[in-house]
Write a protein that binds this DNA or RNA. Structure first.
Length: 479
RNA sequence: CGGGGCGUGGCGCAGCCUGGAUAGCGCACCUGCCUUGGGAGCAGGGGGUCGGUGGUUCAAAUCCACUCGCCCCGACCA
């Protein structure tokens, strides 16, 4: 696997940024659009998103959520209602000021997130404790005027799902917040094969308007952390700002407690960075639009001998719901096709040639390391399923090994700085809980608290100020 | 938003410094022959006006100004 066949892709190790751009474009996931910072998600990329949606949406529905759709445009007066929220988002909001040729009386924000417009509706809809909880999600686009963009990882417009729920009290809302962050963790680890650490954000890193932000953070191969999903407990901040009250069993009016949560197309960027190699993309089987590519070895009278078998193999796999393609194009050689489908990230390849026909077998080849399994046609379906499962598992194990090897502990600031300079990665270090110390670390290393981690033990001292530590956060540079 | 780099057929680049004739190369594409178990070979062919605008000049891909976009580092950012 060391030899590099696709020479147009720069080495991942040498220059991960160039590698990333090169891979997503050669694998045909994305193209640049005419507007700065905006991208076209092409069919190969969008199909991954559809698979992400399918799996997550099922989880949301299973836990009682329903989908709805709220408008793209938000009146300025609504956006301004929750003070902290406005402050957090106003630098990156795009505005509509004209309707046709008429200047609008009130500017309309293109949603950067939908808390405000959804809360304005909730205040109309929620009257009684019997109306609660409200569990609504929407799959939509949002717009944020980002200064620096990179396809999938940070774009001006992106696709996401945003869940917005309302509950009777803190306990119920907090339970929801945690339920969702666990759904995210399980999905990202099991389906995307990306290990994450789950935890709370510090006050400084918290979502604008939230009481508590829970996050799942993944470590990318360059040692930087990627925020993969967040789930916020909003308390009654928004219900007070938007006047969302219900009459409880005890005949008193109470404010609802809310949550909001989301994951975005950024997950695709994380998937590419985590699993790809110098031959291109590797898509985990569970979300791969094409899980198996069949390449007939076009030799001699292959159209009469090999091709019919290849077609049968395809049908048999389709019958057990495996997403499979047959590349029977005549104009390309098998070797060319191997490289091409590897670059596109198809996790498993089936080769069928004259030799295999004689032996009533096919050759299965893993995208990860080109491990070959020669399997009997009789056991085709089971062999393929097993191999796909193995690939899914191996991708996760590989990523987890990397993550663990790049997670260090330190209780000494100089050592901390050394670690950050060299390999980067997660560093666990005791912290007193003060923002001043958090800022100092950021100034000196550019690392931020990704999650505040577990509670510190008796005797742990803050790595910056030396006072008793409250937590052992995970620090890292971030995307 | 600050510093740096780059925009030339679909992609990757050369040419620019030191202005001058038909803008060149590799890949991709089209036609034909021949091949096919790791990106085959030969022959023929099509396609660009040099990111945009303005200027200097007899003459601009090349010099100057402005502008748009992309990439990297930083700041900012859920």
């Amino acid at each position: 696997m060391s030899e590099k066949l696709v020479k147009e892709i720069p080495s991942k190790k040498d220059d991960i940024s160039k590698w990333y751009i090169s891979v997503i474009r050669k694998a045909d996931l994305v193209d640049y659009a005419p507007v700065k910072g905006m991208m076209v998600i092409k069919p190969a990329g969008y199909a991954i998103w559809e698979n992400i949606q399918k799996i997550l949406d099922r989880e949301f529905k299973k836990t009682g959520h329903q989908n709805a759709y709220f408008p793209l445009l938000i009146p300025e007066s609504l956006l301004n209602k929750e003070a902290e929220h406005v402050e957090g988002f106003s630098p990156e909001v795009a505005w509509v000021t004209l309707g046709g040729n008429e200047e609008l009386e009130e500017r309309l924000a293109i949603r950067p997130t939908s808390e405000s417009i959804i809360c304005s509706m909730y205040s109309k809809w929620i009257m009684s404790w019997r109306d609660l909880p409200v569990l609504i999600n929407q799959w939509v686009n949002v717009l944020r005027w980002e200064k620096v963009t990179r396809p999938f990882l940070r774009t001006t417009e992106f696709l996401w799902q945003e869940g917005h729920t309302a509950h009777r009290d803190k306990e119920d809302a907090m339970e929801e917040t945690l339920r969702i962050i666990n759904i995210y963790k399980n999905f990202i680890e099991n389906s995307l094969a990306i290990p994450v650490i789950m935890g709370k954000k510090s006050d400084k890193e918290r979502f604008a308007g939230a009481v508590e932000t829970y996050t799942v953070e993944a470590l990318m191969p360059d040692g930087k952390a990627l925020q993969a999903g967040t789930s916020h407990y909003l308390g009654d901040n928004f219900s007070k700002a938007f006047d969302i009250k219900y009459e409880d069993k005890d005949n008193t009016l109470k404010y609802v407690h809310q949550t909001s949560w989301g994951v975005s197309t950024r997950l695709i960027g994380g998937l590419v960075l985590t699993h790809g190699d110098d031959n291109g993309l590797i898509i985990p089987p569970k979300v791969a639009p094409v899980q198996v590519i069949i390449i007939p070895i076009s030799k001699g009278n292959w159209k009469e001998s090999v091709l019919p078998v290849a077609k049968t193999v395809k049908e048999r796999l389709e019958n057990v719901n495996i997403r499979v393609n047959l590349d029977d194009r005549e104009e390309y050689t098998p070797g060319w096709k191997f490289s091409e489908w590897e670059m596109r990230g198809v996790p498993l390849r089936i080769e069928i040639g004259p030799k295999d026909i004689e032996k009533a077998q096919v050759v299965l080849v893993s995208r990860i390391d080109r491990e070959k399994r020669f399997v009997s046609l009789n056991s085709l379906e089971d062999s393929v399923k097993t191999f796909l499962d193995d690939i899914q598992k191996n991708l996760f194990e590989k990523a987890k090994k990397f993550r663990d090897e790049h997670t260090k502990s330190s209780d000494n600031l100089d050592e901390f700085k050394e670690y950050m300079k060299e390999g980067r990665g997660f560093i666990k270090a005791p912290w007193c809980g003060e923002e001043a110390c958090e800022l100092k670390i950021k100034e000196e290393t550019t690392a931020t608290i990704r999650t505040i981690g577990e509670k510190a033990k008796e005797g742990d001292r803050c790595i910056v100020c030396g006072k008793p530590a409250k937590y052992i956060p995970f620090f890292a540079k971030s995307y």
